[in-house]
C-alpha cells in the first residue's frame, strides 16, 4: 500500500483554479449549477480531504473510507438541486457525511450480526447437487439467479473483479495487474459486492415458502 501522508492532498491540483479560492461555498454552488467545471473543481478540492479525513478517522480503513467518501459525494451532488441555502453548505455536507458514515456502520454491524447468526449446520458440507432433491435444486437455482441479478446490477468491471477473485481465485495483486486498478479500488469493489451478497443472503437463506 502507498505510504500515506497528508502532503500530496494539500498540493494544488492542476484542475483547480486558484482564482476561485476567494469564492464562498455558496458562490461555487451557483457556478456548479451552471456547469462551470472550475467551480466544481474548487468545491471538490475544498471538501475532498475534509470528507476523506473525517470518514477515515471513523473507519480506519482506506477501502471502506473510499466506499463511504464516494457515497457521500454522490449524495451531495445528487441533492445539490434541492439545496435551498437554509443552512450553510458546510453544515449540509457535514450532515450528509455523518449520515453516510453512521448508515454504513449500522449496515456493517447488521451484516456482522447476520454472519454470527448463521446456523453452523448451513456451513457444513452439503450433498452434491446431483444427489439433492428437486426442491433443493430449485432453491439453489433461485439463489444462483439472485446472485446473478446482483452481479448484473453492478458495473461490469466490478462483477469481473468479483469473479476473478472468487471463481478464478486470483490474488488482489493479480487482479490489479489485470484490470490496471489500484488495490484499494479492488478491495473496495470486493467489499461492496460482498456486502450486497451478505445482505441478500438473509433473504436467500430464508426457509422455502416463507
Amino acid at each position: 500500500m502507498l505510504p500515506r501522508t497528508s502532503d500530496a492532498n494539500r498540493s494544488v491540483p492542476k484542475t483547480a483554479s486558484s482564482s476561485l479560492r476567494h469564492l464562498s461555498d455558496e458562490e461555487l454552488l451557483e457556478g456548479i449549477r451552471r456547469s462551470e467545471q472550475a467551480h466544481f473543481n474548487e468545491l471538490y478540492e475544498r471538501y475532498f480531504s475534509r470528507i476523506y479525513g473525517f470518514v477515515y478517522t471513523r473507519l480506519r480503513n482506506h477501502a471502506d473510507a473510499e466506499e463511504i467518501v464516494q457515497e457521500t459525494f454522490t449524495a451531495v451532488f445528487r441533492s445539490l438541486g434541492s439545496f435551498r441555502g437554509q443552512s450553510s453548505l458546510l453544515s449540509w455536507i457535514y450532515g450528509i457525511a455523518k449520515n453516510t458514515v453512521n448508515n454504513a456502520m449500522r449496515r456493517s454491524r447488521t451484516a456482522g450480526q447476520r454472519m454470527d447468526a448463521i446456523d453452523p449446520e448451513l456451513l457444513s458440507p452439503r450433498p452434491s447437487i446431483a444427489t439433492i432433491g428437486p426442491d433443493e435444486q430449485l432453491n439453489l437455482r433461485r439463489f444462483a439467479d439472485s446472485i446473478n441479478d446482483r452481479l448484473e446490477s453492478l458495473a461490469e468491471w466490478q462483477s469481473e473483479v468479483f469473479l476473478m477473485r472468487h471463481v478464478e481465485d486470483l490474488s488482489i495483486r493479480e487482479i490489479c495487474e489485470r484490470t490496471s486498478r489500484s488495490s484499494d479500488a479492488i478491495r473496495s469493489s470486493l467489499y461492496r459486492v460482498k456486502r450486497l451478497l451478505i445482505e441478500d443472503s438473509g433473504v436467500a437463506l430464508a426457509p422455502a415458502g416463507s
Binding site: 500530496a8 475534509r50 479525513g53 477515515y56 484499494d184
Partner: peptide
Amino acid sequence: ADLVEVQASPH
C-alpha cells in the same frame, strides 16, 4: 479533518 494525517489514493 483537513488536518488529519491521511492521504487518499490519488487514483
